[in-house]
Write a protein that binds this DNA or RNA. Structure first.
Lengths: 211, 211
DNA sequence: GTCTATATGGGGATAGAC
DNA sequence: GTCTATCCCCATATAGAC
């Protein structure tokens, strides 16, 4: 049963409209970035008037915060559904693939790292920070586990690994590979995984075949 | 003899002021990003009035374009001065270090990749594109050479290596490592080099000691 | 809750005096 | 070329009718 089942019909419609607004926001955020989006853009994309947006979200900052929260919830849910027997490094590769495919499908990158203002806004949202910390805690445990099993380099501290990992989920190389490299999504995901885990130096293992 | 020697005194002062404006622009760009900078910010930082800026640069876009051109000129000059006997992969590591130290000192990252608008502006500047293509051509030759000498993974196409390399020069992990990881500049450069060339996976070579 | 119409403020760019 | 003062667009946010 869907989560909507708990809500009365009127509230269902409300929730659906909010999701539509967040979908539009996500799409525009990914395409243009926070600063270049206008609330008029969002309103037009979702087919509402601007004041109606403000009935749902009290500001542009609130809107993007909710979109990012939904993204993190998606990541947490994805992690949660991975099979228990999966090796830690495979979990990391799998989540990276998920994040890259979300982006390639027009979604958002994980990190708001590109924009100081957005980062400041998000860190002031308790609901966002809670989820970010939760995700980080889980990934940190996975990294520790992976190092213990010699699946990750124990020469690198956990935070270096984690920040580099996050950075790969929002790596600008993805855009360039699609724009200029003319690779399809599968090839991009594969190449990004290789670069992330084995680097560009010699001695890298051969990339496994997709599928 | 300095390049200023070719100019008459008045033109020297003009050039020096332009450099000061570009310095201020570079510093602010690195700190806040294009969209959040105002021409008032730049004017105040450099100690001029806003209209005076427009005597030197005809628009905000022009200003950032010139700042990026100066950055690329710095990179090209750095590459040019590397000793002829240096191995190709060492050239790449050295230039990466240069770019990271420029950033850590408050300078600009190579790629305007974070901002669609800026990228569009830059690609319309012939002088910028000329330099970007020249740098890319030189790096592509170095990559090819490095692969031939088995210093880089021949499993990866040149463009994947190059885009990933560029992305490392503007990697957001750098900011996070400094902000939250509390590493000093040397450690950050070293870790970024390891991650770039060897990845985060096991089997990475141990990082060499700094200095 | 949705709309049309509008208030408000910020920031790019310029006029015109010196 | 530099300044003070200003123009003017645009985008966030809201007022008020329905």
């Amino acid at each position: 049963m869907s989560v909507l089942g708990k809500l009365r019909f009127k509230d269902q419609a409300f929730k659906l409209r909010e999701d539509a607004i967040l979908d539009a926001t996500t799409k525009l955020l990914a395409a243009k970035g926070f600063d270049l989006i206008t609330m008029d853009d969002v309103a037009e994309e979702v087919g509402l008037s601007k004041p109606s947006l403000y009935k749902h979200f009290k500001s542009k900052e609130d809107l993007v915060t909710e979109a990012m929260i939904r993204l993190l919830d998606g990541a947490l849910a994805y992690l949660d559904e991975l099979p228990a027997e999966m090796a830690p490094v495979e979990r990391l590769k799998s989540l990276l693939e998920w994040a890259l495919r979300v982006r390639l499908a027009g979604g958002l990158p994980f990190l708001p790292s590109t924009n100081t203002h957005v980062r400041a806004v998000l860190t002031q949202s308790l609901r966002y920070v809670t989820r970010a910390l939760k995700l980080n805690r889980q990934l940190d445990a996975i990294v520790t586990d992976a190092k213990r099993k010699a699946e990750l380099s124990s020469a690198l501290p956990n935070d270096v690994i984690l920040f580099s990992y996050y950075a790969r989920t929002c790596d600008p190389a993805v855009e360039y590979l699609r724009l200029f490299g003319k690779y399809d999504d599968d090839a991009i995901v594969l190449h990004m995984q290789v670069v992330c885990f084995a680097g560009i130096g010699a001695g890298s293992p051969q990339p496994r075949q997709p599928g």
